[in-house]
Design a protein around this nucleic acid. Structure first.
Length: 627
DNA sequence: TTTAGGG
DNA sequence: CCCTAAA
């Protein structure tokens, strides 16, 4: 370990990445730390934070939904290592393993870096920069919108530094254990799995796929995807290989000729419509696939498979994961016949993933319709740009995009920092004690923590939630305003100062019975609509309830009276009672109803029911400011 | 800033 | 809860 310089590492603070839960309970949090030569960890400097901030986002940016085992999210760049918390805790051995790689020659380091960046970016965008003779991770299942493919894709991606091992990767999916292996060369000794190294040479030279035997096709498949297949369907294999090599789903099933890992056969031009438009970094140097940026051509349907989240489909429609068999044609067939998008993002999902930077021309040009514009923005593929890190906030490369027959240039780098939902960042903040316990705290964290402290004293002890089990008081959203204020500080390097909305969200706070009663009381006193007054005088101790919240809650209460009360009289089937939801007592509901009717009848006459002299007293309080 | 109303 | 228009 002759590592003289220190390394920075970003450590994930959460073990659990299941996208089912990532939303709230187990956000993925990274910690940036430096790894000194002796393997110890020290807090990262602010420079480190700034330097790797984009990695924090890029790396996670679109992953949450398709990230499964996600254990191997490690990459290093220059002298930096990105590790999840679990990895760090598992032992520094893994860390050291990584460092072994980082002491390679400069060239190798660079390759590592590029590969790493690519790894971090490719899953959603399905843009690949293939290195070495290991074109294994063309994520080409574009037309095959099954979850299994996503699963597979993510697995392949996360395993991308384990290429030689990844031949067995399919079996390894279950065990989250990773065996990081150098990816800069194919030397078998590294992997120790000589027998299963794909024969990449099968794709070298000029090969007519049509002439290959099934076995050869399988080998070619393996060389293309880095995993084995048992499929014996020639057409399917050819098609898949072609797809893999062109990164397109729109390929002919026959007649393709592979030349040096590229499809040069008939119709090939259709397969790679955009190859000419993209920046060709180091493309001329070699005829191998390496260093060639594969760009997904048709943005119309293909990438969407990754972003049609299951949110709207509901769990019933959700594909059960079939990671092992995702190669089987029947999966494809079934998928094609049903022709159903497996995943579709909810609006909120989109919003949370959509950075402010999606206000750029991309979205606007993509579609006049607001909703679909966002969709498209999300679905746009991204390219792992080598110079991305340096070009942040400066010049954005553009690529050609076809929209309604018009060819326009759209920047694609702008989405590289479409960050994770800020919510994660917030909870990140709230885990401050945990972080401190580890003795690792970054500048970002400290900033956040400091910001948080300022407002924390307002918080009060919890009350029994009224309707939902929201006992997780420790992961509370910082007040929105404060978040908005601090974000420009934290993300200054890569984000426009325009950041304002759609980035964070108040943590859901269930209304307690006490709050509801206060609200009702307030409405009785001041009348519905005087939310500001009610908030000031009845909710002064609940800093997190804004007047809008009161208004919303009141509206919900009204609705409740209109639906729940009659329904209860029916007694037929007042829905299944969720034990975790404490129903609002009918008495309160009745009172709400009365108040509502009374005040709506009273029209503009806001003079509410007078409760003795309280009202006047309140007014006096207000007016007595100068006393 | 506050309210009202749609999402 | 979020977002926005309107006041």
């Amino acid at each position: 370990m002759e590592v003289g310089d220190s390394h920075a590492a970003v450590v994930n603070k959460s073990e659990e990445n299941d996208f089912e839960k990532k939303d709230s309970s187990n956000p993925v949090v990274y910690q940036l730390v430096r790894v000194e030569g002796d393997g110890t960890l020290v807090p990262a400097t602010e420079d480190d934070v700034l330097q790797f901030e984009h990695f924090l986002h890029d790396e996670k940016v679109d992953l949450p939904s398709i990230e499964d085992v996600g254990h191997v999210e490690e990459f290093f760049s220059n002298d930096c290592i990105l590790l999840k918390k679990s990895d760090l805790e598992d032992g520094t051995s893994k860390l050291k393993t990584k460092e072994l790689h980082t002491q390679k020659s400069g060239a190798d380091l660079e390759e590592n870096r590029l590969q790493s960046m690519d790894d971090s970016l490719s899953p959603p965008s399905k843009c690949s920069v293939v290195h070495g003779q290991q074109p294994d991770k063309f994520l080409t299942e574009q037309g095959d919108n099954d979850i299994a493919q996503q699963d597979n894709a993510s697995t392949e991606t996360t395993k991308s530094t384990v290429l030689n091992d990844s031949c067995n990767a399919e079996k390894d999916k279950a065990d989250a254990c990773s065996r990081p292996v150098d990816d800069t060369s194919t030397e078998p000794s590294v992997s120790g799995v000589n027998s299963s190294v794909p024969d990449f040479s099968i794709l070298r030279g000029e090969v007519r796929l049509d002439d290959l035997t099934i076995r050869e096709l399988q080998e070619a498949f393996r060389a293309t995807f880095g995993r084995q297949t048992t499929v014996k369907d020639k057409i399917w294999l050819k098609r898949r290989i072609t797809m893999g090599l062109t990164n397109s789903c729109d390929v002919p099933s026959s007649g393709c000729v592979v030349k040096d890992y590229k499809i040069v056969g008939k119709d090939a031009k259709q397969d790679m419509p955009n190859t000419g438009e993209i920046p060709k970094i180091g493309l001329q140097a070699t005829s191998l696939v390496r260093d060639q940026i594969i760009y997904p051509g048709n943005e119309g349907d293909s990438p969407s498979s990754y972003y049609h989240s299951e949110d709207q489909q509901g769990s019933s429609k959700r594909f059960k994961r079939v990671p092992i068999h995702n190669d089987e044609p029947q999966v494809i067939l079934a998928e094609q016949s049903t022709n159903k998008r497996t995943r579709k993002p909810t609006k909120r999902y989109i919003e949370e993933l959509t950075d402010i930077e999606t206000h750029d021309s991309t979205g606007k040009l993509s579609s006049p319709a607001k909703g679909t514009a966002r969709d498209e923005v999300l679905l746009k593929p991204r390219v792992a740009h080598f110079h991305e890190a340096e070009s942040l906030g400066t010049t954005y490369p553009t690529r050609k995009d076809t929209l309604g027959g018009f060819s326009v240039h759209v920047p694609y780098v702008s989405r590289t920092r479409r960050g994770r939902p800020r919510k994660d960042f917030i909870s990140f903040v709230d885990k401050e004690p945990f972080l401190e316990h580890n003795g690792v705290q970054t500048a970002v964290e400290m900033t956040l923590a400091k910001e948080r402290e300022e407002g924390n004293h307002v918080r009060k002890a919890y009350e029994v939630p009224l309707s939902v089990n929201s006992g997780r008081g420790h992961i509370e959203a910082v007040d929105r305003k404060r978040i908005q204020n601090l974000q420009p500080n934290v993300y200054n390097a890569a984000s426009k100062p325009k950041i304002k909305r759609g980035l964070t969200r108040k943590h859901h706070r269930a209304w307690t019975l006490c709050e509801v009663m206060k609200l009702v009381d307030g409405v009785a006193r001041f009348g519905a609509g005087k939310w500001s007054e009610i908030r000031k005088l009845s909710f002064s101790s609940y800093s997190y309830r804004t007047s809008v919240d009161l208004k919303d809650k009141w509206r919900n209460l009204i609705r409740a009276t209109q639906t729940q009360l009659p329904a209860q009289k029916d007694g037929a089937c007042p829905r299944k009672i969720n034990p975790s939801i404490i129903p609002i007592p009918p008495s309160i509901l009745l009172r709400v109803k009365e108040l509502n009717e009374l005040q709506s009848q009273g029209g503009g006459f806001a003079a509410p029911v007078k409760f003795s002299g309280q009202n006047s007293k309140v007014v006096q309080e207000k007016g007595s400011g100068f006393l």
